[in-house]
Write a protein that binds this DNA or RNA. Structure first.
Length: 503
RNA sequence: GCGCUAUUAGCUCAGCCGGUAGAGCAAUCCCCUUUUAAGGGAGAGGUCCCGCGUUCGAAUCGCGGAUAGCGCACCA
């Protein structure tokens, strides 16, 4: 089967390069070689060979035969030396006329950088110290038709790195490492929780009322049911229904939520969250769990609890500091908002500190704004900020000692909110009142507060939910910290981008 | 959503007080053959992001648009 060349009067350079490779592909077919065969019996990874032969002296060779496979990243001396990469690393292939069929040797002319090949041979370390596979035979496993980016500078164009992540991964080893770490981090979280009796569950991403957080949802539509639906902004209300059901005293979910909001180095429209609930404990237990979980994952994946993020050093060794929200504000602004109970007073004090507030801002919102502007930037080392204003926390139990507050904490690392947890509100009457109040006082341009009360959830609570601690952790941000990534797009393989007209 | 910046060969980048384009790598052909960004030689490759304008003349100046990065706003 011959492949037709692109018929065009004006060929772009890329089309020309592609056509040359298609010609090589046709030459292979003419020789009876399938350029896209089915299998290859790989017997060693490049890393395994480097490990096995790390003490092999320069100039020496072994007689054991291996099959390696991977992508050609460079060819030197007209193909006599080939750099081959696989997922574990890189090794040099040495293809010399003394070791290989004359016919096979000619095939090298039909190879290109980017092709995936399998090679058969034994290991030799060259006099210059490079571990190589001395190739007796090789097989083309996939003919590549498009040229890879330049070998020295690689692929640096950020847009192309995100749009064509596969190229980014081929060209940039550290990108592969980041995503390998991402996978290991998520696995360690699962293992940590499973080992402590947490049951992993899945709850709906398609919801009729997007609740469990304050955020603008994505809207979508179900044809057969003929109704609008929303992509979830949080799994919270469904996970707590499972707590009512008593499926397990400890449950967790790690999966995507979606928020129809701005995109930034710390925000992607779809992001991964861990949420967990544990019956019969309060938020104090969640603080301990948070720091033990995160520090343990760091230790397992990175081998240390002291991590570097950009130019900072962050020590994740538990226990972590704790400070009340009011206390933290007092520490960094010298203003005790606990004494400014009335709205006008609080607003006035915020203004004095240079924090803009808006008409209609509640006491808790003013506090939150002051906190974000003046306190958050100082919180580089891990810290639990404890006891939040009641009016920004509709799903948390009232504080047992102060009715303006709820039993909620947010864990800050590097100034970012990494975790958010409460003593979960289980009082159905209080919950109903708060939801109804929320919906009733929702202002016109507020597209983040749910438009209707989730009475089904309130109904579930009326059957009785055990007292419970609940915890949410932003997985992407945690991975950013643990992989020293500056942008959330560096830890999400395919971040949300506008489509391009042409590629 | 607003502001700033970027967009030139497949890739990485020069060129920008206006005179219609260059390099390195990759690719092609030749030479060489134990290389490490292999080396030597030759030739080739472009809607300078798109559109409109100013001008005798625009990659370069102006306006509009596209996409992206960063900052702000919103949020995790």
């Amino acid at each position: 089967m011959e492949v037709e060349l692109t018929e065009k009067t004006t060929q772009s350079t890329l089309e020309t390069l592609r056509n040359i490779r298609i010609q090589k592909l046709n030459d292979l077919v003419d020789k009876g070689i399938n350029p896209y065969p089915y299998t290859f019996d790989r017997t060693a990874s490049t890393a395994q060979l480097h490990e096995k032969y790390k003490d092999l002296p320069s100039g020496d060779e072994d007689s054991e035969i291996f099959n390696v496979a991977g992508r050609i990243m460079a060819m030197r001396n007209t193909g006599m030396f080939i750099d081959l990469i696989d997922s574990s690393g890189k090794i040099q292939l040495f293809i010399h006329k003394d070791n290989i069929d004359e016919e096979k040797l000619k095939l090298i002319k039909l190879l290109d950088v980017g092709d995936i090949i399998g090679a058969y041979g034994y290991v030799r370390r060259t006099p210059r110290g490079e571990l190589s596979v001395k190739v007796k035979d090789f097989k083309i496993l996939s003919k590549s038709l498009l040229p890879l980016p330049e070998k020295w500078h690689g692929l640096t164009d950020v847009e192309m790195r995100y749009r064509q992540r596969y190229l980014d991964m081929i060209m940039n080893q550290e990108v592969r490492e980041t995503f390998l770490k991402r996978s290991r981090i998520v696995k360690e979280i699962r293992d940590y929780l499973s080992n402590r009796g947490f049951l992993e569950v899945e709850t709906p991403m398609l919801q009729t009322i997007a609740g469990g957080a304050t955020a603008k949802p994505f809207k979508t539509y179900h044809n057969t049911l003929d109704m609008e639906m929303y992509l979830r902004i949080a799994p919270e209300l469904y996970l707590k229904r499972l707590m009512v059901g008593g499926l397990s005293e400890k449950i967790f979910e790690i999966n995507r939520s979606f928020r129809n909001e701005g995109i930034s180095p710390k925000h992607n429209p779809e992001f991964t969250m861990l949420e967990l609930y544990q019956a019969y404990v309060d938020y104090n237990e969640m603080m301990v769990l948070t720091e033990n979980l995160i520090s343990s994952v760091a230790q397992k994946v990175l081998g240390t609890m002291i991590i570097k993020y950009q130019d900072k050093e962050i020590n994740l060794t538990p226990p972590w500091d704790r400070m009340t929200m009011l206390g933290a504000i007092k520490k960094y602004t010298s203003v005790d908002f606990g004494q400014f109970l009335s709205l006008p007073e609080a607003s006035e004090e915020a203004k004095k500190l240079g924090v803009e507030t808006e008409e209609g801002d509640k006491w808790g919102i003013i506090l939150d704004k002051v906190f974000e502007a003046l306190v958050e930037p100082h919180l580089i080392q891990p810290i639990h900020i404890v006891d939040y204003p009641r009016d920004i926390s509709p799903l948390a139990k009232p504080h047992r000692d102060d009715n303006r507050l709820v039993e909620r904490f947010e864990t800050r690392v590097n100034g970012w909110e990494i975790a958010n947890a409460f003593s979960e509100l289980t009082d159905p009457i209080d919950q109903r009142t708060r939801f109804e109040h929320q919906v009733a006082t929702k202002s016109k341009n507020d597209d983040e507060t749910p438009a209707e009360v989730d009475y089904d959830y309130v109904n579930a609570l009326e059957y009785g939910m055990p007292p419970a601690g609940g915890l949410g952790i932003g997985i992407d941000r945690l991975i950013m910290l643990l992989t020293d990534s500056a942008s959330i797009r560096d830890v999400i393989a395919f971040p949300t981008l506008r489509p391009r007209g042409k590629q």
